[in-house]
């Protein structure tokens, strides 16, 4: 593996008695997109702020772009905070010029014009930020994050507030940037997007890393205890099926979580007896399901102190 873009070793950060980040180890390979996930208050933002040298860790080391003196390499890092982050009274072109200057961009005017054109914002260049819609602000903010031609791009919920067209446009740009060698950390609560875009996933919960690896690796640690199906039936019927612990229905689709003793063949027979089965797939849980199993409100804990929902993890 090439030298990691980001190396976090045994990093700890407390705010008073609250441990925000607890002994975190993490490495990020260059040219990849990493989904940084976790429930609210899990320590994601604190970790990102430590990476950006906004706050200092209490213990441990962080190496960014090969340097422990992170302030010296910050001009090579782009950061998009979740929502806002722009001076409302400034004109779009001026605010981008300000961030371009801070990042030391050569020929900033040309670069700004190019990005505005790419994101269909040229007509808004002379308008004040406060006049923009939420989606447009998000795009301007995105430009501010990438304008310095970063080697590492940190995105916090980059697609929130965007319509599907703009969402696809930004997604394409992120993928293009990855193809151009930019490494992306991408904090999100949108699990399907993370599944679709990320090469690796890192999940932290209560300050600790609980998942790290590719989606396939992560899913491989969980048993094939999920049935995805499209069939005639309702939630009550699905719940009555033998060995089904939990049902998540999404319109015509449903996900059934099975008990360890459940027999999928019996379930398929019951479904077929009840009506037509259009789709039946025995699979690993989705990232969404994994997230909920780990971060869901489960009060009891196992002997190892981990949430009981995580006990379905196989040794691989």
């Amino acid at each position: 593996m090439a030298d990691p873009v980001l190396r976090i070793e045994r990093v700890r950060k407390c705010f008073g008695a609250h441990v925000a980040v607890d002994d975190l180890d993490f490495q990020l390979a260059p040219g990849t997109i990493c989904g940084f996930i976790g429930p609210n208050g899990s320590g994601k933002t604190t970790t990102l702020r430590m990476v950006l040298n906004i706050i200092r860790p209490d213990a441990g080391t962080i190496e960014l772009l090969g340097s422990r003196a992170r302030s010296t390499v910050l001009s090579k890092v782009g950061y998009l905070p979740e929502e806002r982050g722009l001076y409302r009274k400034m004109r779009v072109a001026d605010v981008l010029r300000f961030f371009a200057d801070l990042k030391g961009v050569a020929r900033p005017r040309a670069v700004i014009d190019e990005w505005l054109q790419r994101l269909d914002l040229t007509a808004w260049a002379r308008r004040k930020v406060e006049a923009l819609s939420k989606g447009m602000s998000q795009k301007v903010q995105f430009i501010a994050a990438v304008i310095g031609n970063p080697e590492l791009l940190i995105l916090d919920e980059p697609f929130s507030g965007l319509d599907p067209v703009n969402r696809d446009a930004l997604r394409k740009i992120v993928v293009d940037l990855r193809s151009a060698g930019v490494t992306v950390i991408f904090s999100t609560h949108d699990m399907p997007v993370a599944e679709m875009m990320c090469d690796t996933i890192c999940m932290i919960h209560r300050g600790k890393k609980v998942l790290d690896g590719s989606l396939a690796e992560i899913q491989g640690r969980f048993a094939e205890d999920t049935i995805r199906l499209r069939a005639d039936g309702d939630i009550a019927f699905y719940r009555s099926l033998p060995g089904v612990n939990e049902v998540n229905a999404y319109g015509p689709y449903a996900e059934l979580r099975l008990a360890a003793s459940a027999d999928p063949r019996r379930i398929l027979r019951a479904l077929a007896d009840h009506g037509t089965v259009h789709q039946f797939e025995i699979t690993h849980p989705s990232l969404h399901d994994i997230f909920v199993r780990i971060a869901g409100p489960v009060p009891d804990t196992g002997s190892d102190g981990q949430p009981s929902a995580a006990r379905g993890v196989h040794d691989s």
Binding site: R49, L52, N53, I54, S71, L74, S75, V77, Y79, P81, E82, E83, R84, G85, L86, Y87, R88, F99, L102, K103, A144
Partner: peptide, 17 residues
């Protein structure tokens, strides 16, 4: 106050000390 309310501080502090 504006920089705090509108999270501009995060971006600034991620660029300069």
């Amino acid at each position: 106050l504006e920089e705090k309310q509108f999270r501009i501080a995060d971006v600034l502090l991620g660029t300069a000390n």
